[in-house]
């Protein structure tokens, strides 16, 4: 009898878990249609990136000099570039670069920022003061300038670009997470953890970090759009991803400028891809912030 109830509870909780997620998604769509539209575009991008091999009509790296600078047609929907490479295929593969750089840099950046912010709030006093002044120092540089410095020091390449984008993200997240951490530090369960004799690391990672999930997620999605834009900017400036890797910022560069009047599709479509993805991440990020943080809600 007892076992039966246990199983019943288990299967019920499993079901309600699924139902909960679907319900949350449905509720989110109804309350925030713009955010849901952003989420839809993000999902399409994710699918394009993961299924690039299956859905792209051509190989993004194959040059075909017989088909140079062709206008959009049935064979090449978005036209071809000056090396005869299919623009649509390069945009689809470019989503991989954009998402990989965007996700990894903003995830690592936001995580590091969250850890620094929470630790700073937890220790307080002098540690907090010193850490915050250092973060202020980093914040005083514009995003792109700081990223340029990092690339200039480390050199180009995908991993270095990720690092370059990550560094300016850290202080922004640290600042926001610290403010949540400060109020969290006053809650009795943190006192309880101290009274139980837990170490600092355990309190920071097990007790404080999981409770700043909302600001962390908000910062993460807000960064994603910026990270993609920053990656495109760096690539455009020749300091990001190197040819021949398909990347949206790279596609805007070089020949695209030269042939801007005769073959505008070379620049228009990757430009649209960048705008649309940044727009989607910003829409989703804003809605997520409103949904997760009732205090910031403006009616």
């Amino acid at each position: 009898m007892a076992r039966e109830t246990a199983i019943a509870t288990k299967s019920f909780s499993g079901f309600s878990f699924l139902k909960g997620w679907a319900g949350v998604a449905l509720h989110f769509t109804r309350r925030r249609p713009l955010g849901a539209a952003g989420a839809l575009i993000i999902v399409i991008m994710l699918l394009a990136a993961t299924l690039a091999r299956l859905i792209s009509p051509y190989d993004p790296l194959t040059t075909d000099y017989a088909a140079m600078l062709q206008a959009p047609s049935a064979a090449h929907w978005f036209g071809t570039d000056s090396f005869g490479r299919d623009v649509l295929s390069r945009i689809i593969y470019g989503a991989r670069t954009a998402l990989w750089v965007g996700f990894s840099s903003s995830f690592v950046g936001a995580t590091l920022g969250a850890i620094i912010g929470v630790a700073s709030a937890y220790f307080g006093g002098k540690v907090d003061l010193i850490v915050q002044r250092f973060m202020d120092l980093l914040l005083s540089f514009p995003l792109i300038v700081l990223a340029l410095v990092v690339v200039a020091v480390l050199g180009t390449g995908t991993v270095n670009v990720i690092l370059a984008i990550m560094v300016p993200m850290v202080p922004r997240c640290a600042l926001v997470v610290r403010s949540s951490g400060l109020s969290l530090r006053q809650t009795p369960f943190i006192d309880a953890a101290r009274a139980l004799g837990f170490g600092h690391a355990r309190i920071i990672f097990r007790h404080m970090l999981p409770n700043v999930m909302a600001p962390f997620l908000i910062m993460l999605t807000a960064f994603l759009g910026q990270a993609i834009l920053l990656e495109a900017s760096l690539s455009f400036l020749g300091l990001g991803v190197a040819e021949p890797t398909p990347a949206w910022g790279l596609m805007l560069k070089g020949a695209a400028v030269e042939f801007a009047e005769t073959a505008p599709w070379m620049a228009v479509y990757p430009g649209l891809a960048i705008s649309l993805s940044v727009f989607a991440f910003n829409l989703f990020g804003d809605s997520l912030r409103d949904a997760l943080d009732p205090k910031l809600r403006v009616s």
Binding site: T187, P188, F189, D191, A192, A193, H207, P210, N211
Partner: peptide, 9 residues
């Protein structure tokens, strides 16, 4: 603690 709501993680 006094407050049973905020004293548990």
């Amino acid at each position: 603690f006094q407050d049973p709501y905020s004293s548990l993680n």
